[in-house]
């Protein structure tokens, strides 16, 4: 187990370097000048030059790249160009909102998706299965931001059931504000999860040992919940883990629609204002998530599936 972890961590180093380089390149292809963004279109040239020097933007690109990589590897993100606040603080402020949204969406997605998927599989081609499959297809086709906008129009604005924007204060209020955005992403996740659950359960139900269990006279419920589900768990959990990444990226548009702070918002805003340190930090954190989630899923695979332990 420890060997696997070490191996994966070593593997992550070139990944990190490639990602950092791509981030750097992407930022420097971006047209637009941070100094101009800060001082506005009617700023005087002398002031722009002065500010560029202060931000270190007048140094050769190679030097800027080296500084960037060195800082990023130490997770030393520096200060925002815009308001000079330490990036670590800005991250600490934004990250929880994205994490709570992702977790909320995942919980809702699992709560809705897994039962539907199981019922769908065990009552194959029944009414529930048919309805669930249509719903899942719809869920996979509908753009998340459209679903969010519809909720906003009908549930918040039309019926006034939910708050309109922001994140709320205090635990209950915060959950209340979280619900619609999490439901939006959660429904889309549920579509994915129910399909995945259905197909894995179906597959497991077709396997020999299930047939054996049935032949041994075990009750159908027991067969399904004891044997089939346990064995279907692994692919579902892995799929779920990887889908966290798409929920994370889906949060960008959802944060925009629902006026929530968060990592995605921070990133898009950073791009718009050419706040390089913000964008760099945001992407590095995203990349960290990606590496981390993949690592966790690998380890989970190993832990749940003894056959992989020696691999």
């Amino acid at each position: 187990m420890i060997r696997v972890i070490i191996q994966r961590l070593i593997d992550a180093i070139p990944t990190a370097l490639v990602v950092l380089s791509l981030v750097f390149i992407a930022l420097h292809i971006l047209p637009g000048d941070p100094a101009q963004a800060i001082l506005g279109e009617q700023a005087t040239p002398a002031q722009l030059a002065l500010l560029r020097a202060r931000l270190g933007l007048d140094r050769p690109l190679v030097v800027q790249y080296a500084v960037f990589v060195w800082d990023a590897l130490r997770l030393h993100f520096g200060q925002s160009y815009m308001n000079n606040l330490p990036i670590s603080g800005i991250l600490a402020e934004n990250l929880p909102y994205t994490i709570e949204l992702t977790i909320g969406a995942t919980i809702l997605g699992v709560l809705m998706g897994v039962p539907v998927g199981v019922v769908s599989a065990t009552h194959r081609d029944g009414a529930v299965d048919y309805g669930a499959r249509v719903a899942a297809l719809l869920g996979l086709a509908v753009p998340d931001f459209y679903l969010g906008a519809l909720f906003l129009i009908f549930l918040s604005l039309g019926l006034g059931w939910f708050p309109i924007n922001g994140v709320g204060e205090g635990f209950v209020d915060r959950l209340y504000h979280l619900f619609l955005p999490a439901l939006t992403l959660g429904l889309i996740k549920a579509a994915f999860v129910s399909r995945l659950t259905r197909s894995t359960v179906l597959e497991v139900l077709g396997r020999n040992y299930v047939r054996t269990a049935r032949a041994k006279g075990l009750g159908e419920t027991r067969v399904i919940y004891w044997h089939a589900l346990r064995n279907a768990l692994l692919p579902v959990v892995t799929g779920l883990g990887l889908s966290i990444l798409s929920t994370l990226s889906g949060s960008v548009a959802i944060e925009l629609i629902f006026g929530r702070p968060g990592l995605g918002r921070m990133l898009i805003d950073g791009v718009a204002t050419r706040d390089y340190p913000i964008v760099q930090a945001g992407l590095v954190v995203f990349a960290l998530f990606v590496v981390l989630v993949n690592l966790l899923m690998d380890l989970l695979n190993v832990a749940l599936d003894p056959r992989q332990r020696t691999a």
Partner: peptide, 9 residues
């Protein structure tokens, strides 16, 4: 490893 949307953005 990256979601397509993120690369697209």
């Amino acid at each position: 490893a990256f979601p397509a949307l993120l690369i697209g953005i």
